[in-house]
Computed example of a mutant assay.
Amino acid sequence: MNTRAAFVAAPLLVLSYGVIRIVDGLDGSRGPGLAWTAGHLAFLAALALFIVIFREMWQMLGRNRIATTSLVVGLVGIACAAAQFVIDIVVGFMAADHDAMSPLFDQVQAVPGVSLAVYAAGPLLFYVAQLALVVQLAARRQVKLWTPVLVMLDFAIPILEKDLIPLGAVCMLVSFWPLARRQATAGARHVLVHA
């Protein structure tokens, strides 16, 4: 996977999820249906790209112990968040309408540990790791000092209001853009050296 593409595509997929989520709620309820499934698939694709992004950041940091810990925490967070989105998709397929979704979610969350791992603490690890990796890059002057601020805004804004997910995704895209450009420059240099 081209890492430059991942740095751009992941925020755009999160943006797509946010926009689809808003559209899905225009009728007063979200899910089940095409918009519910499409939005969740977009976010799942973004999470898959974050594996590439986190790995690239880890390599940029020299694979040191702190970066490795951040990477592992991030991968666990990605797995937990992905589990949540897969559950949401499955519930969407099983439910006849929006009202039928709640009892299904209740059944899933009643399983010991699922609520904490999949809906509360687990996905939070994804955001903590993302911020940790970017802060480390900023401390080493590999990204601008404002980059961690934008990354923080990316996940703080939707906490205030979920309909602001697209705005958070734009913050993510702006924060990742220099990393995407850096990867493009590094790739061009690699081609010139081996030409």
Rank of each mutant, 00 (worst) to 15 (best):
A139M: 13
V114T: 09
L104D: 04
T147A: 14
A186K: 07
R65G: 00
V23K: 03
L47F: 14
A96V: 08
A38K: 00
A117E: 08
V111S: 09
G168F: 13
M172A: 14
I22E: 06
L124P: 00
Y17F: 15
R63V: 01
A180Q: 02
L13W: 09
P158A: 11
W58Q: 10
A38M: 10
V108Y: 12
F54K: 09
V135P: 01
M152C: 10
A6S: 15
T69N: 08
A5N: 13
R182P: 01
H98I: 00
L104F: 02
G25A: 14
D24C: 03
V23W: 15
R55M: 07
R63S: 13
Q183A: 13
V76C: 10
A169E: 01
V193C: 02
C171K: 10
P11V: 07
M101W: 05
A188D: 11
P166Q: 08
L44V: 09
A121Y: 07
A82Y: 07
M57T: 01
A96K: 11
L160R: 01
F93E: 10
L116Q: 10
L26R: 13
R21H: 12
A121M: 09
R4Y: 02
L116S: 10
S16K: 00
A184C: 01
S102M: 10
P178K: 11
L192G: 00
M57R: 07
R21D: 09
L160G: 12
A117V: 12
D27G: 15
F54G: 04
V91C: 03
A81W: 07
D106V: 03
Q183D: 10
S29G: 00
P158T: 12
L116F: 15
A83G: 15
F176L: 06
G31Q: 03
L150R: 04
L13C: 06
V118R: 02
P178R: 08
A195W: 09
V191E: 15
R140V: 03
A95G: 08
A117H: 05
A45V: 01
F43T: 07
F7W: 14
A83S: 15
Q84D: 11
W58A: 02
P148M: 04
L164H: 07
Q107I: 00
R4I: 00
Q109R: 15
G168H: 12
V128Q: 08
I66P: 00
R4F: 03
L26C: 00
M152R: 03
I159Q: 09
T185L: 13
A120G: 01
A96D: 13
P166T: 09
V174H: 05
A100E: 14
L153I: 00
L71A: 08
D99S: 12
Q130N: 12
